[in-house]
Computed example of a mutant assay.
Amino acid sequence: MTEEAKIKGPASYFPSIEKKYGHPITHWLNLLETVSGKKHMEMVALLKTEHGMGHGHANALVAYYLAPAKSD
C-alpha cells in the first residue's frame, strides 16, 4: 500500500487539488486564512465562485482548514 493510499479524510483530496488547480495546498490554506471569520459554507462558496473550484475540493480544503479550531 502506498503512502497516498493511507491518507484519509479531507487530506485525501490534496494531490488532485494540487494537480487540477496548479497551486500547493499551502496556497489555498493561506487564502482561507484571509477570510477566517467567515462560516464554513461561505468559505466554500468563495473557493467555488472566485477560483472555479469544485464543491468537493472546496469543501475538503475548508474542512481541513477548520479542523484544528474544533479541537480548541
Rank of each mutant, 00 (worst) to 15 (best):
Y64C: 05
K39W: 04
T49W: 10
V35A: 11
A69M: 11
G54I: 03
E50V: 08
K20Q: 11
V44F: 03
H55L: 14
E3A: 15
A58Y: 02
H27T: 04
K6F: 12
L29W: 03
E33F: 10
I17S: 00
I7Q: 02
L61F: 04
A63F: 00
N59I: 01
I7H: 00
E18V: 09
K20R: 15
G56E: 12
Y13R: 08
S16K: 09
E4D: 07
H40F: 07
S36N: 13
E50S: 15
A60N: 09
E50G: 10
F14R: 09
A67K: 09
K70E: 06
K70A: 08
K70L: 07
G22E: 03
A67V: 04
M43Y: 01
H51I: 10
I25F: 03
A5D: 01
L46A: 07
I25G: 01
L31M: 11
G54K: 01
M1G: 15
H51C: 11
W28F: 14
K6R: 15
S16Q: 14
I7F: 00
S36K: 15
G22M: 04
I7Y: 00
G56H: 09
M41F: 12
G56I: 06
Y64Q: 07
E42I: 09
P15T: 10
G37T: 13
G54M: 02
G52H: 08
K6W: 07
V35Q: 10
S36G: 08
G9E: 11
V62G: 10
E33S: 12
V62Q: 12
K8W: 02
A69S: 13
I7L: 02
M1D: 07
S36R: 15
K8L: 03
E4R: 03
P15N: 12
Y64M: 01
G37E: 13
E3L: 12
G52E: 09
S16M: 07
H40V: 03
A60K: 10
M41C: 04
G56L: 07
N59G: 02
E50N: 15
M41D: 13
M43Q: 14
G9F: 09
N30S: 14
Y13K: 06
M53V: 13
W28E: 08
A63M: 05
P24R: 14
I17T: 00
K20L: 11
L47R: 05
E50R: 15
Y65V: 05
G37Y: 07
K19Y: 05
L61G: 00
K38M: 14
I17G: 00
K20T: 13
A5M: 02
V62C: 05
E42R: 14
H40A: 06
K19H: 08
